[in-house]
């Protein structure tokens, strides 16, 4: 008899426990805050990993202008973010580190094409750790035997800029196919995003990496030497943002995209080592 009673009792106890847990979580998370005078609205921004250092400040400036709006970020490789959006991940704004990922997002219908704005620029750059044990001071040094290079995977914007730079270098007399072969042979890893490239160099596990000029002003700048590419091989990065197709409140998301393209956000980004968006770009 006691056995037979056990199940319903167990369910009742379990139900009570779950209810209490929900109440506890709810009060912690602040559900049903009918008391609060203003409801906080939030904007979820999916942003390229290279923006991680600068976006906090941009978000704070936007919040200051728009009381009651809370900007949250999720940083990853732009290709990963695009893929997350395509698989139904929530997000109101997509900020990509290249146009290619934005076009792919547009092709799969996860962003609103009319809202696409270019809001910043950057340049591919060589990053070397402070100790610089391989003595890298210019691009050709990366072809020396034994130098360990990390780059971003081809699908990542920084990786696709790297690939393009190498293709151009292969055609220049100064570098040529031999340089490209040596560079490829020295490449020890293709990382999942540009932040991972920076980490491997900061930790001194790699001698050099291909990242961005903005890394000279980022949170890990103290551990890095950032070298620009030779002018002939300069690879300009273009940051593009758009409102997603499933944005909870498209007009609010649109406001954030417009803010990104504003002079105010631009000033913050430039202070953080980014370039102004190229004039003439949409």
């Amino acid at each position: 008899m006691a056995q037979r009673r056990k199940w319903p009792r167990f369910i009742a106890e379990l139900g009570r426990g779950l209810l209490m847990l929900m109440v506890a979580l709810c009060s912690a998370a602040g559900c049903g805050r009918a008391e609060s005078p203003r409801r906080t609205e939030s904007i979820m921004v999916l942003a390229a990993a290279s923006l991680a250092d600068a976006m906090g400040e941009v978000g704070a400036a936007f919040e200051a202008d728009n009381p009651g709006v809370n900007v949250r970020f999720s940083f990853a490789g732009s290709n990963q973010l695009r893929m997350q959006l395509e698989n139904g991940s929530p997000g109101d704004v997509f900020a990509s580190a290249d146009r290619r990922q934005m076009l792919a997002a547009q092709a799969s219908g996860v962003v609103q094409p009319a809202t696409i704005r270019t809001f910043a620029g950057n340049s591919l750059a060589i990053i070397v750790s402070r100790t610089n044990r391989a003595g890298v001071s210019r691009l050709t040094d990366l072809a020396r035997p034994g130098v360990r290079i990390v780059v971003a995977a081809d699908a990542v914007p920084a990786g696709s800029y790297t690939r393009r730079m190498l293709e151009r270098a292969g055609g220049l007399a100064e570098f040529g196919p031999g340089f490209v072969r040596a560079f490829e042979a020295n490449t020890v890893s293709r990382e999942e995003n540009v932040a991972a490239v920076v980490t491997k160099v900061v930790l001194d596990e790699a001698d050099a990496g291909l990242a961005y000029l903005s890394d000279a002003s980022g949170s890990r700048a103290a551990d890095l030497i950032v070298l620009p590419l030779p002018p002939a091989l300069e690879e300009r990065a273009e940051y593009v943002a758009a409102v997603t197709a499933r944005a909870g409140n498209p007009s609010r998301a649109q406001r954030f995209v417009e803010f990104l393209a504003s002079d105010r956000a631009s000033a913050i980004l430039i202070r953080r080592g980014f370039a102004a968006p190229e004039t003439g770009a949409p």
């Binding site: 290709n79 990963q80 695009r82 893929m83 990390v150 995977a153 081809d154 699908a155 490449t187 020890v188 890893s189 293709r190 990382e191 999942e192 491997k200």
Partner: peptide, 25 residues
């Protein structure tokens, strides 16, 4: 693996890594 060994096809790229990184391609 991806943190300690990095990712390079033919050298350190294992099946789970190729799934993760190849997903978007």
């Amino acid at each position: 693996t991806i943190i300690f060994a990095g990712n390079l096809s033919g050298v350190t790229q294992t099946m789970p890594m190729a799934v993760y990184l190849g997903f978007e391609n």
